[in-house]
């Protein structure tokens, strides 16, 4: 049942993402040449922002899972950690990659090493890659789980820094456009496409996390069965 729900959410989310793409390319209003160097590239916004939002959800799951394993030794929380790391990897790469494409068009450079938000987000993505690859190279055990959960826990400190970075340090990455009151609010149609994208990515990432947790559970069951088989033979 859970498998079906997870896969269903993945499929619905994916459909929503594809719809966002179409809306962004064909329906969303264009922006003024005065406000943007590359008005066409601005449409990446409808992908980039929801992907970043989904990445925050994923890293949040990583944090909660890491803390849950370290402090409560909960198996469910460990599965949440692994799912959060994988989801963070996927959405982090999407955000960074779409951001680089947009940056190259808009700023003339895909990256800026002095921008706090870019770099902290990039670090979170690297952390996710590190956790996913690291876990794949090690046998499952408390040593592996404690080590990577500690990284997941401490790495999470980058999330609030990334979130507030553009409020405090606005360097190159633009500041917030939603939820800031009168200043920085966006056009209705743009907001609608953004909302569709945000909902789609959220559904997608929840489905992804559910699926990944199930995969980890199945891997553990498989190991247990194989260990039992070893004892019997």
């Amino acid at each position: 049942m859970k498998q079906k729900v997870g896969e269903g959410l993945l499929f619905i989310g994916f459909t929503g993402i594809a719809s966002t793409l179409l809306l962004a390319l064909l329906w969303a209003p264009s922006v003024s040449i005065d406000a943007f160097e590359s008005p066409a590239a601005q449409r990446i916004f409808y992908w980039h922002v929801p992907a970043a939002w989904a990445a925050f959800i994923a890293f949040g799951a990583l944090f909660i899972g890491s803390a849950g394993w370290l402090f409560k030794r909960s198996e469910v929380m460990w599965r949440l950690h692994t799912a959060g790391a994988e989801a963070g990897l996927a959405t982090g790469l999407m955000t960074v990659w779409s951001g680089c494409v947009w940056g190259a068009a808009e700023w003339g450079t895909p990256w800026d090493w002095t921008d706090v938000r870019l770099n902290t987000f990039g670090l979170l993505t690297l952390l996710a890659i590190y956790l996913v690859l690291g876990r794949a190279s090690q046998p499952d055990g408390v040593e592996t789980r404690d080590t990577f959960a500690a990284f997941g826990l401490y790495g999470f400190v980058l999330v609030p820094i990334t979130y507030v970075a553009t409020r405090i340090w606005s360097i190159r990455h633009p500041g917030p456009v939603v939820g800031t009151g009168d200043d920085g609010s966006i056009n209705g149609d743009m907001g609608l496409v953004l909302l569709v994208g945000a909902i789609s990515f959220t559904v997608f990432i929840i489905g992804h996390i559910m699926n990944s947790m199930r995969v980890t559970l199945l891997e553990q069951r498989l190991e247990q069965l194989q260990a039992n088989m070893d004892k019997v033979i």
């Binding site: 498998q3 896969e7 993945l10 994916f14 993402i17 594809a18 793409l21 962004a24 390319l25 990446i44 992908w47 994988e86 996927a90 999407m94 990659w97 779409s98 494409v101 997608f204 992804h208 699926n211 990944s212 199930r214 995969v215 199945l218």
Partner: peptide, 20 residues
């Protein structure tokens, strides 16, 4: 670029479901 991203997500989703 957009379609490339969509294809990448589709492949990723496929591998997750297939693993399960």
């Amino acid at each position: 670029a957009y379609f490339g991203m969509l294809v990448a997500i589709a492949l990723w989703t496929y591998t997750v479901v297939q693993r399960s």
